[in-house]
């Protein structure tokens, strides 16, 4: 890496940081089937968002089907967001998702249909 590259990477981090504090990135929309068939693709979106310097804000309003692989992805997202010192927000959980979470004794601390206020 040349010094110019290094400088570039520093500036791009700064840009990402600025974008993060401005809350520019939209919420990631979870797929209708939050299952083993989609966790790899959805997980890649999570990683990309974290790498950009953003928070994990997830819109669960479309989730119609969920399995344990899908739930695990949410748990991993929460863990990774914490490790990177980012926020993890899940809103608009559907009944299907709520039912699965409550069976597993899990809660993401956000009431359904109530997006948190500190998003701006």
């Amino acid at each position: 890496m040349t010094a110019a590259d290094l400088l570039h990477s520093i500036t791009s981090t700064a840009v990402a940081e600025a974008a993060r504090s401005a809350g520019a990135a939209p919420a990631i929309a979870l797929p209708a089937e939050l299952t083993i068939y989609n966790v790899a693709a959805t997980g890649a979106l999570f990683s990309a968002r974290l790498a950009e310097g953003g928070d994990l804000e997830l819109d669960a309003s479309a989730v119609a089907e969920v399995d344990a692989a899908g739930i695990q992805l949410l748990l991993a997202g929460r863990r990774h967001a914490r490790a990177w010192d980012r926020r993890f927000l899940l809103h608009d959980a559907t009944n299907e998702l709520q039912a699965a979470l409550s069976l597993l004794g899990l809660s993401f601390d956000v009431p359904p249909g109530n997006p948190p206020e500190d998003l701006q």
Binding site: I36, G43, A68, A69, Q72, L73, L75, A76, H80, W84
Partner: peptide, 14 residues
């Protein structure tokens, strides 16, 4: 569940 770079969403860690 391992750290982000080692996490494979299709692997079960539960």
């Amino acid at each position: 569940i391992p750290a982000a770079e080692d996490f494979d969403p299709e692997t079960c860690y539960l």
